[in-house]
Each structure stands twice: as C-alpha cells, then as structure tokens.
C-alpha cells in the first residue's frame, strides 16, 4: 500500500482567490471561518458557534460580518456582562459576544430585554449585538429597538432581517452604551421587512479583504492539530485506490 499516493505536503488553507474587488465568501463560509476563529481566540465551542452564526447574520444584513467579528476578537480581553434589571453596568469595555449571548439568554427574564428598557454600558463594537437582540425579539415575539451613538435599529419580532438605511453608520462606533427597548409601534424608526426571512440572498455582503481573511484564518488554524503519521494513514482506506 502507498500511505500517501499524492501528498501535497501542504499545511493549512489557501485564501480564496481575489476577484479584483476583494475575496468573496458565501454565508456558510463566513459562519464556518468565524466559528473556528472564535474558538481559536479562546471562546468555548458553544459561544464560538454563535459568534460564527452572528458573523453570517451580519453579512446577510449587508454588513461586513467577518471583519466585525475580527474586530471583536482582536479587542480582547474584555469585561463580561453583569445582567441586572434596567441597567447592565460595566467594569470595563464589555465583550459584545458575551453580552449579546446574555441579552438573548435573558430575554423574558427581569434582567433581560422585555417590556422595560435595558441600558448596556460601553460595549465594544455594539453592531455585533444586533443578531443576538434579533433573537431576543423573536423569543419575546415583540420587536426590539436598539439605540447607540446616533444609530437606531429595529429588530422585527418575526426574525426578519432589519432594514438598514446606512450600514456604514451602524458599523462605525467602536464603543458605545446601548439602549434596548420595545418600541412604540407609532414611532418605529425603520420599516419592518415584509418577508418572514430574506431567502433571496439579496443585499448579502460577502466581500472581505485578504488581510481580514488571513487574520481570521490564523485564529482558525489554532483549532487544528498537526497529524501524526499513524492518524494520517488510518484516515483513509487500507488499500490503494488504484483498483
């Protein structure tokens, strides 16, 4: 038997090719890369999976989800959230992944988003909270409005993607205090998208720079193991494939 009939002796992954306007990733690729990168950055698997999902969600909303996730992962170490009714006070800049997950988990509890508003102190890259607040809205069955800096976004109750008038301004603030409320129906700032889910792929933002890809990939590669010869051989058939 030939253990390695065709070993490319290649380690790691190759970047997707640049098509002239940056690299173009599909949503599942952003999600998979994001998950591995978050795990590589030290988050638990259960958190990392949701970090990857959130990056894909942001891309679906027309935002550079992979780049935002990288910003979040680079900003470590950050303070964990301290949920309390009405006001989540911070001991330092808060991690938007842990805070987002806590907001989602606490939906319907006294500390969480619900009928009374929640003020979350200084969160790094508050845009990253959006996917989790969207889930909280779906869990509550009520739209939730997020406001930070000069941004106001409504996350619909049916899990639909929000309509973002100006994605760049949503993306911009590096750190802000965020208020989450159930909006007055008469004052909803953004029209609620009509479809329950945007399945057309329109508005998807999959372009990332080579530098972003490389940094996320470097983190992702921290989750991989250099193979032993034994495991490499055992992963395949015990005979030649030339039969």
């Amino acid at each position: 038997m030939t253990p390695q009939p065709n070993d490319p002796t290649q380690v790691g992954s190759e970047p997707p090719r640049d098509e002239g306007d940056g690299l173009r990733l599909s949503r599942p690729e952003i999600q998979a890369l994001g998950t591995k990168a978050a795990r590589g950055a030290g988050y638990a698997w259960g958190q990392a999976e949701e970090a990857g999902w959130a990056a894909g969600w942001l891309a679906r909303a027309g935002l550079p989800g992979a780049a935002i996730l990288l910003d979040v992962l680079k900003a470590q170490p950050l303070a964990p959230p301290a949920p309390a009714p009405g006001h989540w006070k911070a001991k330092g800049p808060q991690c938007p992944l842990c805070t987002g997950l806590a907001l989602q988990d606490h939906a319907g509890l006294p500390e969480g988003p619900g009928p009374s508003s929640v003020l979350v102190d200084s969160v790094i890259w508050p845009v990253f909270l959006m996917p989790f607040v969207a889930r909280a809205a779906a869990a509550l069955g009520a739209p939730l409005e997020m406001a930070w800096a000069d941004v106001r976004v409504t996350l619909p109750a049916d899990g639909a993607m929000p309509t973002l008038e100006d994605p760049a301004s949503v993306r911009a603030p590096e750190q802000a205090t965020v208020r989450i409320t159930v909006p007055d129906p008469k004052e909803a700032v953004a029209p609620i998208a009509p479809a329950a889910k945007d399945n057309t792929g329109a508005g998807f933002e999959g372009v990332i720079t080579l530098e972003t890809w490389q940094k996320l990939d470097t983190l992702a590669m921290c989750t991989t193991v250099t193979s032993s010869i034994e495991s490499r051989v055992r992963a395949g058939a015990q005979e030649s494939d030339n039969d």
Partner: peptide
C-alpha cells in the same frame, strides 16, 4: 475528534498516544 492541520480533514485520534 479533531481537524487536521493539513487539508483541514476531520480525524479521530487516540488520546493515550497522540498529541492534540
């Protein structure tokens, strides 16, 4: 279970004898 560095292939290792 782990992902191999080369070609990112899922593999199964022996805890007692393999690294990773």
């Amino acid at each position: 279970w782990y992902v191999s560095e080369e070609k990112l292939e899922p593999r199964l290792g022996e805890r007692a004898t393999e690294e990773g």
